[in-house]
């Protein structure tokens, strides 16, 4: 055998989300602290493949990335009647918690990007004690819209092309061409209306202004990292959000945009490695009974 086989494995788990069974695809690698990774709107778990394959991280973390229902290899729920897909704060939160429970994860770390970063804030508000640490990439309580989402799903505009073209500007110019193309490919492959439906959560239902003040980082540490080239969730949006949360840690990442883990995995690693290292240290100290 001469082919290189990556250490990532993929399986399906049947998850009860609000009384509805969802067949969810997930990939994982490593052992140790569960680290659940959430993809951006309109994409899927492939965005995390470089982190999943990272041998150093995999020594201490069980890295898991799942495709939300309707995304990637997770089909729409079996009972879907063709109604317009719209992600809500409640449904998104419910899905993540149900997935973690289905895998019996013990106080996982959750790291989400974009909509995943936003929902991480909601987890911190309402369910902090269930998690070891929370990491929001390109996360803010709210950000100003910069296009009309009606363009994302209409019969006279190619959905895959317009979704990819819109988000292409959110990638930093320094990102390698192959990683840029791969990041956009997932957007070209999304189901019709799925990106738009995710943005219902982002734009309409998931406005967390006035709620993030309730986050208590003593219960669960919160790390926020945003790329300097992200003009959707700008560094200022993240800093403003963090300003209302005592103890929130902010990092602005140079030469990165809205998709740090997939647009430039090497550059992202420089920023996420110290965060994961700190979580690992804290976890070890807690295990030894040392107050942190």
């Amino acid at each position: 055998m001469s082919g290189v086989i990556e250490p990532i494995t993929g399986r399906y788990v049947h998850v009860d989300v609000g009384g509805e069974i969802c067949r969810i695809y997930f990939e994982e690698n490593g052992a140790g602290i569960p680290l659940v990774c959430l993809h951006t709107a309109g994409s899927d778990g492939r965005q995390w493949r470089h982190l999943l394959a990272d041998q150093e991280f995999a020594r201490n973390f069980r890295i898991i990335a799942f495709d939300m229902p309707w995304h990637g290899k997770s089909n729409p729920p079996a009972g879907w009647d063709g109604a317009e897909y719209q992600l809500t704060t409640a449904r998104y939160t419910q899905t993540i918690r149900a997935f973690c429970q289905a895998l019996a994860l013990d106080k996982p770390v959750v790291m989400g990007c974009s909509i995943g970063g936003r929902i991480v804030l909601n987890l911190a508000i309402d369910h902090a004690c269930e998690f070891r640490a929370l990491i929001g990439l390109e996360a803010a309580d709210f950000q100003a819209p910069w296009y009309d989402t009606a363009w994302l799903n209409r019969p006279d505009v190619h959905g895959g092309e317009v979704c990819a073209a819109l988000v292409s500007g959110l990638i930093a110019p320094q990102s390698p061409e192959n990683s840029r193309a791969e990041t956009l490919w997932a957007y070209k492959q999304g189901g019709p209306g799925v990106f738009k439906g995710d943005l219902y959560f982002y734009r309409v239902d998931g406005d967390l202004r006035g709620r993030v003040e309730r986050i208590d980082t003593r219960i669960c540490p919160l790390f926020l990292l945003t790329g300097e080239y992200d003009f959707s969730c700008t560094p200022e949006d993240t800093k403003r959000t963090a300003g209302a949360i005592g103890g929130a840690r902010v990092t602005i990442m140079e030469q990165l945009g809205h998709f740090p883990m997939s647009e430039n995995p090497e550059q992202f690693r420089r920023y996420i490695a110290p965060v994961l290292g700190e979580i690992l240290d804290q976890s070890r100290q807690t295990k030894r009974g040392v107050p942190v």
């Binding site: 910069w146 363009w151 317009v162 292409s168 500007g169 080239y229 003009f231």
Partner: peptide, 29 residues
């Protein structure tokens, strides 16, 4: 940052997009 994309420019008020946007959006890239 902020000057690297056509829609980054519109968001920051450095550019203005007007008219029937269909040809622009259908051929955005």
């Amino acid at each position: 940052p902020g000057f690297h994309d056509l829609l980054a420019l519109t968001k920051r008020g450095e550019a203005v997009l007007e008219g029937d946007l269909h040809p622009f959006m259908a051929h955005l890239q």
